[in-house]
């Protein structure tokens, strides 16, 4: 009996020893896990910082703005005033020069598919300025570049380029508005001529939006929403008006934009060739063609209503459907 109990006791002690060892081991492994997790967290933080700098270029700007808030606003104002004065001078040209200005490159405008023609396009000033930000930058961007001289070469895809595009777009639009409102009346043109000029300027603006969007995508500004320009950058253009211009954009350009967007967001495996070939083809092909982000681009562009009214409508529809059942 004693032997049996002694045997059992030994066994029990052995099991206890094994369990203790296990606990020690798990403690050790847990400690190593914690260390690994800490290292990973540090790496993640570094990565996040890199990402922030790459995509937004926000941090430097914010710090700088906080330091120089007061001085910056005054310089900005004075520079903006100068820009407005320049614009006013430009808009007060003679009749003939204006007419030439408005009907620029009519033939190239009609050819929507020829993207290379944009070399002469005013927006290209914007993309050139992406390469030489010092030349075209407005006050804020200029000062931010002055203060981040180390990053000048890398920061071209950051915040500076965005300001350049924005300012050029707004200037061009202001010019367009001035032409529309004031100068067309002075020219005393026929209705047909007026219409022609209006459509030409509208086409030009659509092209401009396209070029600006392309530049923004290439500059990797706000990669999560490259269509930032549609609703934000078009200073003084009403959202509805911008939507009209965007809806006039040709299918080829739209596809080009999506292609670029997906390329820069790392989803360049989408098949875009079928986009041009068979536009009216089956749903399946379209689904293959566009990834979710591609759909999002269109989603944003076409302005599907996602406001509170649409939510209310949907809930109401569902409730009536359930009520009926």
């Amino acid at each position: 009996m004693k032997d049996v109990i002694g045997q059992a006791n030994d066994d029990y002690n052995l099991i206890k020893q094994v369990e203790k060892n296990k606990i020690v081991k798990t403690k050790e492994s847990r400690n190593s896990d914690i260390k690994q997790a800490k290292n990973e967290a540090v790496d993640q933080d570094n990565l996040d910082e890199e990402r922030k700098e790459k995509y937004y270029g926000v941090n430097d700007d914010i710090d700088f703005h906080r330091r120089n808030k007061a001085s910056k606003s005054s310089t900005n104002d004075s520079r903006n005033d100068k820009r407005i004065q320049n614009l006013q001078q430009k808009s007060s040209k003679t009749d003939n020069s204006l007419k030439e200005d408005i009907v620029i490159d009519n033939a190239s405008d009609k050819d929507d598919s020829d993207i290379d023609d944009r070399d002469d396009h005013p927006q290209i000033i914007g993309s050139q300025s992406l390469q030489n930000p010092e030349n075209e930058m407005d006050g804020k961007a200029q000062s931010s570049f002055d203060n981040s001289s180390e990053k000048d070469t890398n920061n071209l895809s950051g915040s500076g380029s965005k300001y350049a595009t924005v300012s050029i777009l707004s200037e061009l639009h202001k010019k367009n508005v001035t032409i529309k409102n004031d100068e067309l009346n002075l020219l005393e043109l026929d209705d047909d001529e007026k219409k022609e000029i209006e459509t030409t300027t509208a086409n030009k603006l659509t092209d401009l939006i396209y070029s600006a969007m392309l530049a923004e995508i290439k500059a990797e500004v706000f990669p999560q929403r490259p269509l930032f320009l549609l609703t934000a950058d078009l200073d003084k253009i009403e959202l509805d008006q911008a939507m009209v211009y965007l809806n006039d954009m040709s299918v080829e350009k739209e596809a080009e934009l999506l292609k670029e967007y997906l390329k820069y967001s790392g989803e360049d495996d989408a098949d875009f060739e079928s986009w041009d070939n068979d536009k009216n083809d089956k749903d399946n092909e379209e689904n293959k063609m566009f990834s979710d982000s591609g759909k999002l681009v269109l989603y944003e562009r076409k302005g599907i209503s996602t406001d509170l009214f649409s939510i209310e409508n949907y809930v109401d529809e569902l409730s009536t459907e359930i009520d009926d059942k």
């Binding site: 926000v58 914010i62 407005d138 924005v166 929403r225 200073d235």
Partner: peptide, 13 residues
């Protein structure tokens, strides 16, 4: 980013 963040042609970061 929205147009509301633009003041006199400059995006307010």
């Amino acid at each position: 980013p929205r147009r509301e963040f633009i003041f006199s042609g400059v995006f307010d970061e």
